[in-house]
């Protein structure tokens, strides 16, 4: 393998990994606060992509507007899912909310089939995304630079919200002790909504970039990336935002590199995530960063 090819693979891995990381953040934030695995999160990812398609083909919105609208609408749906399916079960045993999450996941998938059909839909890409950029011997698609950069900026924004703003302080407090936060005046339900909104917006951004990279939409398109992002969140230490980022990026890089170095194993591509999960759970059950509880949100 030449050096140029290695760089290319590394960049591809980083791209895929950033997309996993953006989804993983939503899993980890909701888990950090509610100890709930939001199985509907992979459908939120999928809806983000579909809404862009809808905006483009049905309302003839310009790309930029379609993307912003899709992210906002998806965030609203994420909040709505919590309000309708999880909030009424806040005091119920945790398994009830988990089952509700699985139900919402199926519901959203089927709703998408009803609204958009079950057949794969093509997304046409803006022309400027198709022309490879040459950097010495390394040829990369613009997306390969664009996705990690944008993801990085989104994550910086998230860190700012969580660590530098008042609602972020509220989030960090309720992730540790909901009741005490409540009597100190933190509007718990509003902060939980905000958490779902942020997580869903990031997942939508990921879904949209995913659709630009693999331009075919299907109602089940969220399942595999969603599952891998969940694994990335567990791998990084569920509840930890830095863990979700590191876990997502590592998973993406490992997946791409494994296929690059061992092309014979390409068919087992999706299995790497699970092997990684099993290994980490055996060595360090709390995940890479799970021990540092202070990062839990």
């Amino acid at each position: 393998m030449t050096w140029a090819m290695f760089v290319q693979h590394a960049l591809n891995g980083l791209t895929l990994g950033s997309l996993y990381a953006l989804i993983a953040i939503g899993y980890t934030m909701v888990y950090g606060i509610l100890r709930l695995i939001n199985f509907a999160h992979s459908e939120i990812f999928m809806l983000g992509a579909y809404f862009v398609l809808w905006g483009l083909t049905l309302f003839y919105l310009p790309w930029f507007v379609a993307i912003v609208v899709a992210i906002v609408v998806t965030a609203a749906i994420g909040i709505l899912v919590d309000r309708v399916a999880y909030r009424p079960l806040r005091d119920a045993p945790r398994i009830s909310a988990l089952i509700s999450a699985i139900g919402v996941s199926f519901f959203l998938q089927n709703l998408t089939i009803v609204a958009f059909g079950a057949l794969p839909r093509e997304v046409y890409r803006p022309a400027w995304l198709e022309n490879p950029i040459l950097m010495g011997e390394v040829r990369v698609l613009p997306l390969t630079l664009f996705v990690p950069t944008l993801s990085f900026l989104l994550m910086l924004g998230l860190v700012w919200v969580v660590y530098k703003t008042k609602p972020g302080l509220g989030m960090r407090a309720i992730s540790k002790d909901i009741e005490t936060s409540y009597i100190m005046g933190v509007p718990v339900n509003r902060i939980i909504s905000l958490t779902f909104g942020i997580g869903s917006a990031l997942a939508a951004a990921s879904g949209i970039m995913w659709a630009l990279r693999y331009p075919q939409l299907q109602p089940v398109m969220g399942s595999i990336p969603g599952f891998k992002a969940f694994i990335a969140a567990v791998f990084g230490g569920i509840g930890s935002i830095p863990g979700a980022v590191v876990g997502g990026i590592m998973l993406g890089v490992i997946e791409i590199m494994a296929v690059a170095f061992f092309p014979d194993l390409a068919g087992y591509r999706d299995a790497f995530a699970f092997i990684l999960l099993i290994v980490i759970l055996l060595i360090k059950p709390t995940g890479l960063m799970g021990a540092r509880l202070e990062d839990k949100v």
């Binding site: 509220g170 960090r172 005490t180 005046g185």
Partner: peptide, 16 residues
């Protein structure tokens, strides 16, 4: 809140 600093704990008290 054990994971928040003293200042952050105080600020949380002033959340309202």
């Amino acid at each position: 809140f054990p994971h928040l600093t003293v200042i952050e704990n105080l600020r949380l008290g002033a959340y309202s």
